[in-house]
Amino acid sequence: MKKIDDLFVIESYYSELNMNQFFDKDMKDHIKLLKFERNEYLCREGENMPYFIFLVEGKAKLFKTLPNGRTLLLNFYTPLKVIGDIEIVKNQAASGSIQALSDCYCLVIPMEKAREELITDRKFLKFTCESLAEKLFVISMNSSINLLYPLENRLASYINELSIPIRHSNSKKYINFDENLVSIAELLGSSYRHLLRTFNSLCKKGVLEKDNIGYRVINKELLIELAGDLYKDTTFL
């Protein structure tokens, strides 16, 4: 995590996103800008959150650890998404872990200051209620997806959300992703063997190609077709 002290950049984000719509009072003086690099955690389940976070650039994934020790994918976060709405209302530690899938830029307010200034702010509380309602809907949908959709579709959607273009590839179709397969199996609620069979199936269909590094997407259009709208992050903003 890196703090960015460029006031011009902070004010640009603040103005472009019309952050004043979320508060009755002007919170600009309390807002900082943080950069989380790919694979860094914006928050970890069970740990106290030092900041109330607005994700303004980048992509992250939300997952939760189950009582049996396995993890389960709940959602993908894209701008503009708030992180810490449950925690600020219930005054509790982080209820899930959020990990950056790309470099993420976040406008943040120290949690202590946010609780002091915003817990009685009507505009902020209305915004928080809308955020929680939308998250509940999305997580409920994604939980149903984990139960009802074949692993092939869930894996295709996950790869589609996760994949990053290779800058120096000879073909624009080639997209690489470097996730640990054991972690993917856990996140998607699958066994490792079933996951490997599904990867092989996607290779046979011409969606993926295996090389010395791992897997590459060679048919983005077919990947998107198999993925459908699964795990898509929605927003009301």
Rank of each mutant, 00 (worst) to 15 (best):
D103F: 06
V56H: 08
Q21W: 06
V89S: 11
E117V: 05
T71N: 02
K25C: 08
V56N: 08
A60S: 07
C43R: 00
D121K: 13
M19H: 10
G69L: 05
F36A: 06
L17S: 11
L125V: 14
L17K: 09
G58C: 07
N91R: 13
S12H: 14
Q21A: 04
R70C: 07
A93W: 01
I31V: 15
E47Q: 13
K25L: 10
A100Q: 03
I119K: 12
S15M: 14
I119R: 11
G69W: 03
D103G: 08
I119A: 12
K35A: 12
K113Q: 05
E117A: 11
N20P: 00
Y77K: 01
E37C: 14
F8R: 14
M19Y: 12
T65Q: 02
K25I: 12
F8E: 15
D103H: 07
E117G: 05
F23W: 04
P110M: 07
E37R: 15
M27K: 07
P67M: 05
E87C: 03
N91M: 12
L118D: 04
S102N: 10
P67G: 06
L125F: 12
M19I: 10
C106D: 07
L55F: 08
R115D: 09
I88G: 05
L42C: 01
E37T: 15
K123A: 05
S95G: 02
K126S: 09
K123G: 05
H30G: 06
R122H: 12
C104K: 01
Q21N: 06
R38S: 14
K61W: 01
E40F: 03
I86C: 08
P50L: 11
S97G: 02
V9G: 04
D29Q: 11
N48C: 08
K64R: 05
T120F: 14
I86N: 09
E45C: 01
P110K: 08
F36I: 07
K123L: 11
N75Q: 02
I109Q: 01
L33R: 04
Y77V: 01
I10E: 08
D29N: 10
L125A: 15
R44G: 00
E57Q: 07
M19A: 07
P67F: 03
V9T: 14
G96Q: 00
A60C: 08
F76I: 03
V82R: 03
F63D: 00
M111T: 13
E11Y: 09
G96V: 00
E117S: 10
M27T: 11
G69Y: 03
I88M: 11
I83G: 03
K81F: 06
L74P: 00
K61N: 04
E40K: 04
F52I: 02
N48G: 07
I83H: 05
L17M: 13
L17R: 09
